[in-house]
Amino acid sequence: MNSLADIAPLLDRNAESPLWTQFRDSLRGLILNGELAIGAKLPTEAELGEQFGISRIVVREALADLVRSGLIYKIKGRGAFVSARERDEDFVSTVLGFSDEMERKGRTVRTQVLVQELRAPTTPEAHALALAEGDQVVALKRLRSVDGELQLLVETAIPADLAPGLHRTRLENRSLYDVLRRQYGLRIVRAERWIDAVLPDAETCRLLELATPEALLRIESIAYGPSGRPLEHYRALHRCATSRLHVQTTT
């Protein structure tokens, strides 16, 4: 195999991000862009270290993270290989946000904000979020793609008193849950979710660029903080032609 360093982005030793994350992201990009084929064998740790001018410790840490995200796998005595890209989506059964869960799997999420406003809640929103008369919500409508493929149309409502100014915060291509954690100290610890199948209307077909209507999974969620107060209500329409929702249960 030719040197991967010849086709990967250069590592910047003056950057704030550590070398192992730069190296990991370089390999991730080669895999997701198809420059490393499914099943391809990676060079050894020693060879990768020599090609990129980094230590084996740096290489090992990056490869371990790629194994955790499912982009590569290792066979004892044979080395590391490129995995088939993961298409099962676990966000519906975890309290991770959609962006956080996709990032953990090494996938690229893009978010287009269609609506971001401060307003009175609808009746379902007020009921789900246990709001009183006169309370307001920050309402969002976002279109989300995964690895360049439109996947999700989401309408979200968050109590305005919990996130003052959120309606003015830049959310394009950002994780909402990350913003809520970092900017407002809001942590989601559990959620209730309901899933059914629906056919999209003409406007949804236009937004998701569906040439013909196809069945979508409709997900409704109410998420709660440590105190038990509802923090978020959303309704999402999820394309399922090229992916599956994965739910893990325990006793």
Score class of each variant (00 low, 15 high):
10 L>A: 12
12 D>C: 10
14 N>E: 12
23 F>M: 11
25 D>Q: 00
25 D>E: 01
26 S>K: 05
39 G>H: 01
39 G>L: 05
42 L>A: 09
42 L>Q: 04
42 L>T: 05
47 E>H: 02
47 E>P: 13
48 L>D: 06
48 L>S: 05
48 L>T: 03
50 E>W: 10
55 S>L: 02
56 R>V: 11
59 V>W: 03
59 V>P: 07
61 E>V: 01
62 A>T: 06
64 A>C: 02
68 R>T: 09
73 Y>A: 10
75 I>E: 11
76 K>T: 15
77 G>P: 02
78 R>N: 15
79 G>W: 04
80 A>N: 10
83 S>H: 00
85 R>F: 15
88 D>W: 08
92 V>D: 03
97 G>V: 04
98 F>R: 00
100 D>C: 10
106 G>C: 01
109 V>L: 04
116 Q>V: 07
116 Q>S: 07
122 T>D: 10
122 T>R: 00
124 P>D: 02
125 E>K: 00
126 A>Q: 11
128 A>T: 11
130 A>E: 07
131 L>E: 12
133 E>C: 11
142 R>H: 13
142 R>N: 07
142 R>A: 04
144 R>Y: 12
150 L>N: 08
153 L>E: 15
153 L>I: 04
155 E>T: 08
160 A>N: 01
161 D>E: 00
172 E>S: 07
179 V>E: 04
179 V>F: 07
181 R>Y: 15
182 R>Q: 13
182 R>K: 09
183 Q>C: 11
183 Q>F: 13
187 R>L: 11
189 V>Q: 04
192 E>F: 10
195 I>F: 13
200 P>R: 00
205 C>S: 07
206 R>T: 03
212 T>D: 01
216 L>Y: 04
217 L>K: 12
217 L>D: 10
220 E>Y: 08
221 S>P: 09
222 I>T: 03
225 G>P: 06
227 S>G: 03
233 H>E: 11
234 Y>D: 13
234 Y>K: 13
237 L>T: 00
241 A>V: 09
242 T>W: 13
242 T>Q: 05
244 R>N: 14
245 L>N: 01
245 L>C: 08
246 H>E: 05
248 Q>K: 05
248 Q>R: 15
249 T>F: 08
251 T>N: 13
